[in-house]
Write a protein that binds this DNA or RNA. Sequence first.
DNA 1: AACGAATTCAAACGATCGTTTAAATCCCTA
DNA 2: TAGGGATTTAAACGATCGTTTGAATTCGTT
Lengths: 213, 213
Amino acid sequence: MPTPRATATRTRLLDAAERLFAEHGFAATSLRTVTEAADANVAAVNYHFGSKEGLLRAVVERAMATVNRERLRLLGELRAAARPPSAADLVHAFVATGAHLGDPQEAGGADLRRFLGRLVCEPDPAIRRLFGAEVAPVEGEYLGALTEALPHLTPAEVAYRYRAMVGLLALHQSGTLTDFHPGPPPAEPPGPDDAARLTTLLTAAFEAPAARG
Amino acid sequence: MPTPRATATRTRLLDAAERLFAEHGFAATSLRTVTEAADANVAAVNYHFGSKEGLLRAVVERAMATVNRERLRLLGELRAAARPPSAADLVHAFVATGAHLGDPQEAGGADLRRFLGRLVCEPDPAIRRLFGAEVAPVEGEYLGALTEALPHLTPAEVAYRYRAMVGLLALHQSGTLTDFHPGPPPAEPPGPDDAARLTTLLTAAFEAPAARG
DNA sequence: AACGAATTCAAACGATCGTTTAAATCCCTA
DNA sequence: TAGGGATTTAAACGATCGTTTGAATTCGTT
């Protein structure tokens, strides 16, 4: 049975790992950096999560649980409406969830977004497998809804554009789309809400006619 | 003066590094793995390139020189035509260069594409700085041409969508868009040329009206 | 108060990392 | 053919990595 103090340590480790993985990536973050930031012992990671990869798995599961719940909730709302959801509706629901994750309420909202954004681009097959398993359920739901909303596209075309949406949102979340040139941050703030820009762009991409084979 | 034998070693190191960086990423690839694959000594890297980062820099410069030359050449062709290039023309020139890099002629074409694709997603600020410096010149040219071709968009909007194009092409090159779920490769081959899918998608994205502020 | 499981801790393990050193080898030139 | 810079080599350096160990400590229960 986990003691209250133990779950507190677990949470501190998860928070610190989420932030540091988001900042430096998984491979480049050492366990000692994590445990130092979490004010815990190095061995605590292996005690609570078994290994470094176990820690990553726990961080991923916690993060994805949040976004999966919200995405399915929004999809349920859309489906409850009179007319079936349009591609624009679906894109907005999907993107807004990712772009506004824990917006101002939680302090670590930005960390969570950056972490998930980085996750999509991770090269390591083990990490990709981990991530793929977590997104599978909501992916199926949205793919189905999008295919119905876009009858002029083959399922393969819809799937390709869906993956493009996931990838682009990830780049948006990880800051790759805005902080393209490292160095001093851009003078002008995000402007007319980058999330809206992204939604517009992706909606147009989905509604485009199929590519000529 | 570099001896012929020395430049051969340099080339073998660059080839091996390009392939291994593409496969495992920069941080996760050890110098010993590279030198082993290149049939060279560990110290050869520091002798020829100064450091591991120096090796990366050399790989990036060699790779980007190829794509920059081709992209500027295609842009010159488009500008030599009677009418100014459309957004579709520009997107096609930009994407096709990245998607068909060293297509069948060179054996390492796939490595080069994957390497450049991974590069865009690299988190390390030092790597991003390195990459940013290499793409700057061609970026300016294409941004200017795209802004002229899309008078209904503000330069900031064009820039945002340009970065989306770069990012999406990178995901395409690194296989993130096609090998989304790790494991057995997809049964159906690339279909109607994924590069064409990407070009269609991006052209529609560029031509979309501006997002409502 | 005392037992015992849960949790934390300091310390060390073996492995691997990027880098450096100094000697050995290659190859062109005089 | 002898000399000398260019290149390669084997070996070691210090640092850091993820993980393990076994003892200390905490804390609810009897």
